[in-house]
Write a protein that binds this DNA or RNA. Structure first.
Length: 538
RNA sequence: GCUCCUGUAGUGUAGUCCGGUCAAGCAUUUAGGCCUUUCACGCCUGAGACUCGGGUUCGAAUCCCGACGGGAGCACCA
């Protein structure tokens, strides 16, 4: 009916007929059905060629005709980058790449006192780690003069005015949709007051504000004459005391988008209400508007992402620093052993939705596991080591593969009269039963408990259920840091960072710091130092 | 409170604009099996969803209305 619209008129009559025919056909055995189709309508059986693999997980961009696609990632350098930043950056980069366009890294650093040089640096480090290549870097604070010019323009056209009301008053008026007397000033008066904002001896911080003439009666609260510039005399991380009057996000962001010819601007959903405002301002200035695309917040279950959630944890000493492996900061993820490619795939798998997503860490883990599995050397590690004597060994020198299916080389291990096995495994071993010591062969337990002894039986055997790892020689004592969820619901998990003691074979020393390892039957870990690893995930 | 956004399996999404091929796809999770010198990876099979109530229509996940749930904004932060 989709194909033959005329039939829709008669849908009521056709319905029963179809039902009847279908049930008739279903009476016929499937083999005969196939045969008949084969004879009469062979084209139906042709397997349709798979559609070409989707280029990207992201929906196609709108309004791309005749434009160079330019996107931008605009962080405020007031904190360490986290997975939420990664989402914005990855999406912006992906769209630029899809269209052979450009990506701009723009620091929105217009709030002196909150920016710090280390944050600028950390954001760049984060981008590099993620492998996100930007074509240019902008600092809003380098270009305030352009914004001042635009301000002059908008004052001249009487679309902005200087307001000298108190903050409380402004806020109250906004709620009550009342205009203050400042709106009645003439353009000349506004210009004079505007200059007074810049004057050393003029207005002080908090005394005056350039406001956009929006609409105090608007249902959209962002339209109620928002601040465009304010005075901030705090020292700026890059500009120091050079400027006194600073633009707000509502002014700086969109003007930069416009000047830099950003074609598509992706921002998180909380800015959606400001679209009307931003379009109105650009219209008043006669400037080009970019396409806005909004997406929902990304949170990881039990891992605080927002600055306001993160900061108290650090300040109260609940978490030592921003690179803690329990945190969803890029540095935390890196230390934990999460790969940047996994972060990218994960972020793209979430799609461009306006839903707020709270993803379990396991989703990220799944992407990561697939990446690290083929690169991770397998090593034996035991906890609560228990000595087990081994007798009748065919050889004292063993060559163990570093990976079960991929050639990552072999390592040589020397075993003499005994090995160390995991304490938990030792408890399970009873006299008379067989066990496989991974990499050696099948052993029979001839003595259990305190005098645990195993005798080599054969290289191989069927149906040996127990397979255990072991360590020989002088193992390396290791501190294994195991991160867990920081919060369960609202409750801080006091036990979120456990430390386990483990003993690992000597080969560990040959690995580089940062290498990913899989301790057989334990999980993936990232080497931090000679005596410390961080548990990545199972 | 007002305004806006949003609601598909346990979780995350595709599909919604342009109603029929969606008895709903994918991934993760989970159950079972296979593979295996790991409880890894890989492979196979299964389980599991359109928030609710009305309406329009021959036909609604899709359109309309209402309810309910979640989020955001109401900053001289971004």
């Amino acid at each position: 009916m989709g194909n033959v619209p005329e039939l829709r008129q008669k849908a009521k009559e056709i319905g029963p007929i179809i039902t009847e025919i279908v049930s008739e056909i279903n009476q016929i055995p499937i083999e005969e059905q196939q045969k008949e189709i084969q004879e009469k309508y062979p084209e139906l059986l042709e397997v349709k060629k798979e559609k070409p693999e989707k280029q990207s997980l992201l929906p196609p961009l709108k309004n791309t005709e005749g434009k160079e696609i330019i996107t931008r990632f605009p962080p405020a350098p007031n904190g360490y980058p986290h997975i939420g930043h990664a989402k914005a950056a990855v999406i912006s980069e992906e769209y630029a790449k899809m269209h052979g366009g450009k990506l701009i890294l723009r620091f929105e650093d217009t709030n002196p006192g909150t920016e710090r040089l280390e944050y600028y640096a950390a954001i760049k480090v984060g981008m590099d780690w993620l492998g996100i290549k930007y074509d240019s870097v902008e600092h809003v604070s380098d270009n305030l003069d352009v914004l001042y010019e635009k301000a002059d323009q908008i004052i001249k056209s009487n679309d902005a005015y200087v307001c000298t009301c108190s903050q409380d008053n402004i806020s109250k008026n906004r709620r009550e949709m009342i205009e203050c007397n400042c709106t009645k000033q003439s353009v000349e008066e506004n210009e004079k007051l505007w200059h007074k904002m810049f004057d050393e001896k003029g207005f002080k911080e908090g005394q005056a504000l350039l406001r956009f003439r929006g609409n105090m009666q608007s249902g959209n609260t962002t339209m109620r004459d928002p601040a465009l510039f304010r005075i901030n005399t705090k020292r700026h991380a890059r500009q120091e005391q050079k400027y006194k009057v600073w633009p707000t996000y509502d002014f700086a962001g969109i003007i930069f988008d416009s000047i830099s010819k950003v074609s598509h601007a992706m921002r998180s959903k909380e800015f959606e209400l400001r679209k009307e405002l931003h379009h109105t301002i650009l219209d008043k200035l006669g400037m080009e508007k970019s396409e806005f695309i909004f997406f929902g917040r990304l949170d990881l279950e039990g891992m605080p992402v927002s600055k306001s959630a993160l900061k108290p944890l650090i300040e109260n000493g609940k978490v030592p620093w921003y690179d803690d492996p329990r945190l969803p900061t890029l540095e935390g993820l890196r230390r934990r052993g999460i790969r940047p490619e996994a972060v990218k795939k994960f972020v793209l798998s979430l799609g461009l939705t306006k839903n707020d997503t709270v993803s379990p860490f396991a989703s990220l883990e799944a992407f990561n596991k697939k990446i690290i599995d083929s690169e991770s050397i397998r090593l034996h590690m035991v906890r609560n080591p228990k000595e087990m004597k081994v007798t009748n060994l065919p050889s004292n020198e063993l060559h163990l593969p570093n990976h079960p299916t991929i050639d990552l080389g072999k390592r040589t291990v020397t075993v003499n009269d005994s090995v160390l096995i995991d304490g938990d495994d030792a408890k399970e071993l009873k006299k008379g039963e067989s066990v496989r010591l991974l990499g050696i062969g099948i052993f029979k337990i001839v003595e259990d408990d305190s005098n645990l002894t195993a005798e080599f039986i054969s290289e191989n055997a069927e149906n040996i259920e127990k397979k255990i790892q072991w360590v020989a020689g002088e193992p390396i004592k290791l501190k294994i840091i195991v991160p867990d969820q920081l919060f369960f619901g609202e409750t801080f998990n006091e036990d979120s960072l456990k430390e386990i003691e483990g003993y690992v074979e000597q080969t560990y020393l040959e690995l580089k710091d940062g290498d990913e390892i899989q301790f057989i039957r334990f999980g993936y870990c990232r080497k931090e130092s000679t005596h410390q690893v961080i548990f990545t995930h199972k």
